[in-house]
Amino acid sequence: MPKPDFGFSFAPNRALELSVPLLPEVQAVLEAEPSIRACMACGQCAAVCTAGVFTPLAFYRLVLQLWAGEVEVVGQRAQHCMLCGKCQMTCPRGVNIRNALLLMAALLPPKP
């Protein structure tokens, strides 16, 4: 008996589930570059980011999304980075942003 069409459908709760343990690949990125933990999302990196002018790339936001396990988005956004290093120069917490972004960009499976 095919499922009746009600004209609408339910969707799971959009809330982030923090209790879900970190994904292994996220764990790997954090271990490879522990300074990511020092990010306090102050937004200084996004302020100087050239790629950020043209794309939604903002490193502090990628860190948050990394913790939330949104590996797809993080991977795509990180690929826009030119690695110019302005963010790393201004970061008040000394996060190795360039290395972090390289690791994040590698989160996505390589293009066929």
């Binding site: 790629a51 794309t55 690929q79 960009a105 499976p109 390589p110």
Partner: peptide, 13 residues
């Protein structure tokens, strides 16, 4: 090391 890294710069004006 970073061969999996693929930069996408199509957004450049």
């Amino acid at each position: 090391i970073h061969e999996k890294h693929h930069a996408v710069y199509s957004y450049l004006p």
